[in-house]
């Protein structure tokens, strides 16, 4: 257990220094350039070289004809790729992959938390807390501080945990908003289960 936590804090330390390093941005830009331009260009060069040097001579196409056939193949491939790419983004795998993702219809963790009182915005907390006293006000205070901690720490830390006011407080706050207690129990049970698969 201790080894696990030491290893985890070691990872966090490395992660934090990478995240905050301006020099690491160079790798980001390098990767983006490679992925978006260079890799594609290299594939195109490979295809042309293979076509010119291996495939066309093997099927007996020589001389100027080789250049015409290569050009024709490139034009056909580019036109077909553009057409297929448009279809793919708007109706094909790109669109369907997004829509078939379970989180297209399941609320993701952040949304679930956002919809509960645990990470509701500060203006809402302020508006609701006005005029409250005692235990209820303490709960609003807890919620406000938990939200501020979450927002602040997520700005620079590597691992981010959601704000977690106590269950008792969440219950009180939800009842104050107007939910009945049975509804709140069910709701909190669901939220807790959802936050499990982090």
């Amino acid at each position: 257990m201790q080894i696990k936590s030491k290893f985890y804090s070691f990872l966090r330390k490395i992660g934090r220094s990478i995240y905050q390093s301006k020099y690491f941005d160079i790798i980001v830009y390098l990767r983006v350039t490679h992925m978006n331009y260079v890799a594609f260009l290299l594939t195109a060069i490979n295809a042309i070289v293979l076509l010119q040097g291996v495939v066309l001579p093997a099927i007996g196409i020589q001389g100027a004809m080789k250049i015409y056939v290569t050009l024709a193949v490139i034009i056909i491939l580019v036109v077909l790729s553009v057409m297929l790419g448009w279809i793919d983004l708007n109706a094909g795998t790109q669109r369907k992959i997004i829509e078939k993702n379970v989180y297209w219809y399941k609320p993701p963790w952040k949304v679930v938390r956002e919809l509960t009182f645990t990470s509701i915005d500060l203006p809402f907390i302020v508006a609701m807390a006005e005029g409250t006293e005692g235990e209820l006000k303490e709960c609003y205070k807890e919620a406000a501080q938990a939200v501020v901690d979450w927002l602040y720490e997520s700005s620079f830390d590597v691992v981010v945990r959601g704000p977690k006011p106590s269950d008792d407080c969440i219950k009180k706050l939800l009842v104050h908003i107007g939910f009945d207690e049975r509804q709140v129990e069910e709701y909190l049970k669901f939220v807790k289960e959802r936050s499990e698969y982090r």
């Binding site: 993702n101 379970v102 989180y103 952040k110 915005d121 500060l122 203006p123 501020v148 981010v160 959601g162």
Partner: peptide
């Protein structure tokens, strides 16, 4: 893997810049 890829995205629990501005008012 597809589901796990989505869940391991840090923005699963990290607010974006503009969400941060919205939450803080």
């Amino acid at each position: 893997v597809s589901k796990s890829t989505y869940e391991t995205n840090p923005y699963w629990r990290r607010p974006t810049f503009i969400e941060r501005k919205r939450f803080v008012g």
